[in-house]
Amino acid sequence: MSIQHFRVALIPFFAAFCLPVFAHPETLVKVKDAEDQLGARVGYIELDLNSGKILESFRPEERFPMMSTFKVLLCGAVLSRVDAGQEQLGRRIHYSQNDLVEYSPVTEKHLTDGMTVRELCSAAITMSDNTAANLLLTTIGGPKELTAFLHNMGDHVTRLDRWEPELNEAIPNDERDTTMPAAMATTLRKLLTGELLTLASRQQLIDWMEADKVAGPLLRSALPAGWFIADKSGAGERGSRGIIAALGPDGKPSRIVVIYTTGSQATMDERNRQIAEIGASLIKHW
């Protein structure tokens, strides 16, 4: 067993022997301040990774656009098919120029040779490549099948209805392509620590998230040296922004954090800054 596999296998073990965790309302004060600064709703939840206990939450059962955070769930569904012998990570998928959609920095470079399922998941999570996500959605049967996968996990809230990039439209009061912070946090925890996926697939999923290259201005910008984070960000229309993450000190994750916002007129930089400040408060009061 590799060191990384050992780390993920012992996530519940280490967490069980940690000192009790206590909620700190100071972080919620910052979440509410972010709402004021952005002029928009902000949803927040913080779960203990081992027990699933909610440590703090704000608007945990209000719907927010998922945006690209759905790509972690998508690759979880792909990995479940791999575990069941219905898919192979090494299978190569070929596609054409007509398949390319807006923001496809990886797939646009491989029109000639195609990409493997493993490479597509890596591109979808680490670079948020939209064509990679659409190609992977095709392998599982489309958005409705991802929703069905989530329902089978016990998540009857999260739903995907459309493809990239239309799913980022974020129309107010439109339930399409949305989740709730509580539902997303619980589902992410199941994917990373539950028995739904094999140990190898859980490790692969967290490795992809740990290698995320496009979430630097968010929670990662607030992390002290030595902290662990595996995350996936999302951005959408109407001032929408979000991030889902597993993080913790001492090089291992111990909490799940989900943050979503929508309806702001603020710039992307300002949305990023507010999420980073929430992260800084979380870490300060850990």
Rank of each mutant, 00 (worst) to 15 (best):
K213H: 12
I275P: 00
P20N: 13
F13S: 08
A266S: 13
T198F: 07
I140C: 06
V82P: 01
L188N: 02
D48C: 07
P249V: 06
I229M: 08
M1N: 01
A182W: 13
T126V: 10
P65E: 02
A182K: 14
V258N: 02
A276L: 08
F6P: 06
W163C: 12
P249G: 05
G263W: 04
S80M: 12
V214R: 07
A182E: 10
L111Q: 10
P224D: 06
M66D: 00
R241W: 02
E145Q: 12
R271G: 08
F149C: 07
H156K: 15
A276D: 05
A133D: 00
V117Q: 03
L167F: 04
A200H: 15
L47N: 03
N98L: 15
L191I: 10
D33H: 15
E166A: 11
I125V: 12
D48S: 08
R176G: 06
Q4G: 08
D250R: 13
R220Q: 04
D83F: 02
L191K: 01
F6S: 08
V42P: 00
L74D: 00
D177L: 01
L55N: 08
R255N: 02
L136W: 00
V82E: 05
E35M: 04
M184V: 09
A280M: 15
Q265V: 12
P224A: 05
A230W: 03
T107G: 05
R241H: 04
N98R: 15
H285T: 15
M180E: 15
K109L: 13
I229H: 02
A266N: 11
H5I: 08
D129V: 00
L89R: 03
L247M: 15
Q265H: 15
S104T: 06
W286M: 07
V31H: 01
V29N: 15
K284T: 14
G263M: 07
I140Y: 09
R92S: 10
T126A: 10
A230E: 01
S128K: 00
Y260F: 15
D33C: 15
M1S: 01
Q204A: 12
N168D: 07
D212P: 04
L38N: 06
R189L: 10
Y103Q: 04
S96E: 13
G216M: 10
Q37P: 04
I93S: 03
E108A: 09
W286I: 05
V257P: 00
K252A: 13
L120N: 02
A215Y: 04
L28C: 08
T261M: 15
D174N: 06
A34G: 07
T178G: 03
P65L: 03
E277T: 13
G76Q: 01
T138D: 12
M180Q: 15
R91P: 01
R159P: 00
H24S: 14
E108V: 14
D177P: 01
